[in-house]
């Protein structure tokens, strides 16, 4: 029983911290945000996407295992197909299928 309570407290605290982080900018800048923050708000989305890409790929080790080759091939595929057709679903499904084939069958 105490274990269940502890589990629920853990879930509650994780939920509370997550929500606090999400609400923080809106609470701190609830009046008019300074111009520098508005500027950051405009340019950050573009920078964040790069950061998230690196975040997704951080687990790759270049020197061991598959050397990141499946990731490289699949991303190159996604870029090429997306440049060609501009169809998001096609790029995603194609890229993921190729990645799954590569990691399951080739490497």
């Amino acid at each position: 029983m105490t274990e269940t309570i502890h589990s629920f407290l853990l879930i509650a605290i994780i939920a509370a911290v997550t929500a606090s982080i999400r609400f923080m900018p809106f609470v701190v800048f609830r009046k008019d945000a300074p111009r520098v923050i508005i500027y950051l708000g405009k340019v950050l989305p573009h920078a964040i996407m790069g950061m998230l890409l690196v975040y997704c790929l951080k687990g790759i080790s270049i020197f061991t295992g598959a050397h990141g080759i499946p990731e490289f091939i699949s991303i190159a595929f996604v870029v090429a197909v997306h440049k060609w057709r501009h169809n998001t679903l096609l790029s995603l499904i194609g890229g993921t299928a190729i990645y799954m084939l590569l990691v399951q069958l080739v490497f």
């Binding site: 989305p45 573009h46 996407m49 998230l52 991303i75 870029v79 995603l92 890229g95």
Partner: peptide, 18 residues
């Protein structure tokens, strides 16, 4: 195995679009 690559692919697509 590897199906979670869909998220990486999505980040790539959004990066390109932006």
């Amino acid at each position: 195995t590897g199906v979670d690559f869909v998220m990486t692919a999505l980040f790539v697509v959004i990066f390109l679009e932006q």
